[in-house]
């Protein structure tokens, strides 16, 4: 970011100081730091993962956005790119990965499958959209989204980060229970979401 975008518009800076001084808010500085070092989790699911890898390679080079450091461990990652079809069998590990990521954390649903089930939505082992379990920040349509489309989506995520403010950041608030904690689903006769056991019991009793 150059000083033009750093500066707050209401402060007039003398001409000769313009390259040396910038007046900005803590928020802008804080968000600039965060948006320029979003480290994604090195985590691929399906076809979209290949396009995600392609976005890391020489032609698209996500390093230009400070996103080249793909971390294999969730403890060091800021961003979970859900790149591909989420199956019921794979869902518990994904939820565990998400729960292990430190705040602030973001989720990008890359491609149709992660956004809403995609072409495989009707399948018996497919979760129709990761947003049923995780709070998704950006949805990228496409099957698969090209690497450029992925980068466009990540720029959208950066815009979202820019709008957040340190005053309201939930991750600095004292809390007894992590509001973003998602209970890990159980594999039963079908996928059991622990938050919905009462619904499931009621619906199963109604079944003829």
């Amino acid at each position: 970011m150059d000083s033009e975008t750093f500066n707050l518009p209401q402060y007039e800076i003398p001409e000769d100081l313009r390259h040396a001084v910038a007046v900005t808010t803590l928020d802008r500085l804080y968000n600039w730091g965060r948006r320029s070092s979003v480290w994604p989790l090195m985590f691929g699911l399906a076809c979209c993962a290949i396009e995600m890898i392609a976005a890391q390679t020489a032609r698209y080079d996500m390093a230009r956005f400070g996103m080249e450091v793909m971390r294999p461990t969730p403890r060091q990652a800021d961003l979970l790119i859900v790149s591909g079809t989420v199956t019921k069998k794979m869902l518990p590990p994904i939820i565990r990965l998400y729960n292990q990521m430190p705040e602030p954390k973001y989720v990008v649903a890359m491609g149709a499958c992660a956004s809403g089930g995609g072409p495989f939505k009707e399948g018996y082992n497919v979760v129709a959209g990761i947003d049923k379990f995780l709070p998704v920040d950006v949805y990228i349509p496409g099957c698969p989204p090209t690497p450029q489309a992925l980068i466009a989506g990540l720029i959208k995520l950066q815009e979202k980060i820019d709008k957040q403010t340190i005053k309201e950041a939930s991750w600095y608030k004292r809390k007894v229970k992590d509001p973003n904690y998602v209970p890990v689903p159980i594999l039963g006769p079908d996928l059991i979401d622990p938050r919905r056991t009462a619904d499931i019991k009621a619906a199963a009793a109604q079944k003829e």
């Binding site: 018996y124 006769p189 079908d190 996928l191 499931i200 019991k201």
Partner: peptide, 25 residues
């Protein structure tokens, strides 16, 4: 949405009178 048409509200199907609380994985 396909979800609205399914009795369990999602891509799910359980046997009759299934009780998730009693399920031992």
């Amino acid at each position: 949405m396909a979800e609205d048409l399914n009795p369990f509200g999602d891509n799910l199907t359980f046997p009759k009178n299934f009780d998730p609380e009693k399920w031992i994985p």
